[in-house]
Computed example of a mutant assay.
Amino acid sequence: MMTNLFSSFDPSTNFLLPMNWLSTLLGLMFIPSMYWLIPSRWNYIWIMITTTLHNEFKTLIGNKSKGSTLIFISLFSIILFNNFLGLFPYIFTSSSHLIMTLTLALPLWMSFMIYGWTNHTTHMLAHLVPQGTPAILMPFMVCIETISNVIRPGTLAVRLAANMIAGHLLMTLLGNTGPMLSLVLINILIITQILLLMLESAVAIIQSYVFAVLSTLYSSESS
């Protein structure tokens, strides 16, 4: 039962090549060409969002790293597009699979670690022992901080994938009960599904923002 339930989120298109992962780039197709040529309301809204994110990320990273916010704004944008696309019927939700979220999180974390340990070794070692730690607890704190540092890409990936698949799974379970309900209960089910859809829209924005902010914080610690 559980295998069949979760398999509804697996890739299913095998026409010559698996085409499911092309949905990752569908967000660019939905943006009309007039967006790039003539300023519109959507253009101004997106510029306002990216400017706000730029100012916030610049505060977290610091002024010494110029242009680095572009990476995290792009990361926010691609996750946001994929999260929203998953809310449409019959569109593959790539952000609910660990293979994509780990692909985003692991190279970022690895590059931060390589850069930090190569150029700021003393600074990275100082992060392993919090200030004011008693001498007897220092070996334990080093082990705890090392483990918490190593599992960061996993927590980033699992947090995004789990939050995206949880709401979709709940909506799928509720939707499958529709044919067996009476007319009154179907009306209640439709209202519940609409509320869940609104909640999932908020989760899509929040999770992309959390992923980008945590990546920014990990970057600031290694610089």
Rank of each mutant, 00 (worst) to 15 (best):
M171E: 12
T121Q: 12
I205E: 01
K58I: 03
I151F: 15
I114Q: 11
I47C: 04
N163G: 15
T52S: 09
H123Q: 13
K58C: 09
P18D: 14
G178I: 02
I136L: 12
T146C: 09
G116K: 00
M124G: 02
N176D: 06
A202G: 11
T101V: 13
F84A: 03
T121V: 12
I136P: 00
L195C: 12
I205Y: 07
E221T: 00
M198C: 13
A162E: 14
I190Q: 07
Y44F: 11
F72T: 02
G132H: 12
L37D: 05
L16M: 12
S148T: 06
L169I: 02
N119C: 09
L104T: 10
Q131K: 13
K66T: 03
I91H: 04
T103P: 01
L5I: 06
I194R: 05
G175Q: 10
T177S: 05
S77C: 14
L25F: 05
L26A: 10
S12Q: 11
S94Q: 01
F76K: 01
N149Y: 05
I144H: 06
P179L: 05
I194L: 08
M171P: 01
F15R: 12
T133E: 06
S8D: 08
S8V: 02
N187M: 10
F30E: 13
W36S: 14
T103L: 14
L85I: 12
H123T: 15
I78C: 15
F15D: 15
L183N: 11
L75R: 06
N163H: 12
I188D: 14
F88T: 09
S40A: 09
T122P: 04
L183P: 01
L137V: 10
L80H: 07
T216A: 08
I49W: 00
G167W: 02
A126T: 04
L128G: 05
V129I: 15
F15C: 09
I91Y: 04
W46G: 01
L26Q: 07
L214R: 03
M29N: 07
T50N: 06
F81V: 04
L199N: 14
A204H: 03
L17T: 13
L195Q: 09
N4G: 03
T216P: 00
I73T: 14
G62A: 05
S215R: 01
L170I: 15
I191Q: 15
M48E: 07
Q207T: 15
L160A: 05
I114N: 06
I144Q: 11
L169P: 00
I47M: 05
A166G: 09
A212P: 02
R41F: 09
I114T: 11
L183Y: 08
G154K: 00
L181P: 02
Y44L: 14
V129P: 00
S95N: 15
T118F: 10
L37H: 04
S74T: 15
